[in-house]
Design a protein around this nucleic acid. Structure first.
Lengths: 195, 195
DNA sequence: GTCTATACACCGATAGAC
DNA sequence: GTCTATCGGTGTATAGAC
C-alpha cells in the first residue's frame, strides 16, 4: 500500500488507523478553530506525533482536506440512502439535513472550495447525489400533496435543504427572527406529506 | 483625524481615498483568491505601495476585514431601504438578494465570522436588519396572499433569502438540479403578491 | 512507522527616518 | 503620507537516519 511520490518520499497506507486519526483531528480543528488553524503542525500536535508524519500519510495539505471531506461525504450519503428506504422517510431526511450537520464546518468547507478545485468537485458531487436521494424520497409521497399547483420534487428538495442550511447557520449565530414561524411552515408541510 | 495606537504608532484618517482603495483591493482579493491570500502585503502590492502603509490605515488585519464588511453592509442596507419605499418592492428586493451578491464573497465572510468575533457581530446585525426591512415590505402585501393558512411575513423573508442564497451559490458551483423548478415556484409566489 | 533537522517563503506588526 | 529596515513567528515540504 506504500507509494512513492517525490524522488525520495515514501507514503503511508490510506485508510489505516492513524490515517483516520489525522482526519479526525483535522475535522476537529476546522470546526473549533477554523481554516487558519488547519496546519500540519497542529494536526500532529493533537495526536502527539511530529509534523513530518502528516506528510507521510498525505501528499499535501490540500490532499488531506479533500480526503477529509470525501470521507464525511461518503458517510453522509450512506446514511441518507439507508434512511430513505423507509416507507415515509421525509421527516428523517429533514432531521439529518438539519441536525446532523455542523453549520460552522459547512461554511469552512464552502470557503475552502472557492480556491481548492478538487474540493469543489467533491462538493458539487455531494450536492447532486444527496439531492437525487431526496427527490426520490419526495416522489414517493407525490400523491399526498395538496398545494395547487403541485410542487416539483426537485424544487421541494432544493428549497427544504436551503432553508435547513440557513436555519442551522442562523441558530448557531444567534439570530432568531422568523425561525419559529419557518419551522411551523415546514412542519405543516411535512405533516401533509407524511401523516 | 490621525490617531495614536501603540507607543509609537500613528494612524491615518478613516474614510480617505486610499482607505477606500485598500478596502477595494481587499475585497477583490477575497473574492478572487480567497481568505488565504488576504494579506497586508498583497493589498499593498495591488496598489503599488508598501506593506507598512496598510498598517498606517488599519490597526490590524482583523480590523481591516471588519471595516471592509461593514462598508458593504452599509451600502447594501441603504439600497434595500431605498427599494422598499416602492409600492410593490418584493420583486426588486428579490433581485437584490439574488443578483447583487457574490456567493463566493459571502462564503468567505461566513467562514471568517467563525473565528473573528467582531465580524460575527456585524454579520448578525446585517441579517437582522435586512430581515426587518424585508418583513416590512412583505407585510404591505399581506392581504394579497392566497395560501391557506397565510404564511407569516418573517417566515417568508427567511425562506426566500435562504433559497436565494443557495440558488446563487449552486449556480456559481455549476449545480443545476431543481433550479428551474424552484425559480418557477418563487416566480408564481411573487406574481400572486405583486400582480 | 516515526524521527531529527532543515530549506525557504511568507506573515503580522513595529520603530523611526524622510 | 510614505518609506526602509527589521523582529519573531509560522507555514509547507523535503532529505535521510533510526
Amino acid at each position: 500500500m506504500t507509494e512513492k511520490v517525490g524522488p525520495n518520499r515514501r507514503m503511508g497506507p490510506v485508510g489505516s488507523e492513524i490515517w483516520h486519526s489525522m482526519l479526525d483531528s483535522a475535522e476537529d480543528i476546522l470546526r473549533e478553530e477554523g481554516h487558519a488553524a488547519l496546519t500540519s503542525r497542529r494536526i500532529a500536535d493533537r495526536l502527539g506525533v511530529k509534523q513530518r508524519l502528516v506528510y507521510y500519510y498525505f501528499h499535501t495539505m490540500d490532499d488531506l482536506i479533500v480526503a477529509m471531506f470525501r470521507r464525511s461525504l461518503e458517510r453522509d450519503l450512506a446514511r441518507l440512502e439507508e434512511v430513505s428506504k423507509a416507507e415515509m422517510p421525509l421527516r428523517q431526511l429533514w432531521e439529518i439535513c438539519f441536525h446532523s450537520h455542523d453549520a460552522r464546518l459547512i461554511s469552512e468547507y464552502m470557503a475552502l472550495a472557492n480556491t481548492l478545485v478538487d474540493l469543489r468537485q467533491e462538493v458539487i458531487s455531494f450536492i447532486e447525489k444527496s439531492r437525487d436521494i431526496q427527490i426520490a424520497a419526495i416522489n414517493k409521497t407525490a400523491d399526498r400533496q395538496t398545494t395547487n399547483p403541485k410542487l416539483p420534487a426537485s424544487a421541494i428538495a432544493l428549497m427544504a435543504t436551503s432553508i435547513g442550511l440557513s436555519l442551522n447557520r442562523e441558530e448557531q449565530l444567534g439570530v432568531k427572527s422568523g425561525h419559529v414561524e419557518a419551522f411551523a411552515v415546514l412542519n405543516e408541510f411535512l405533516s401533509v406529506l407524511e401523516s
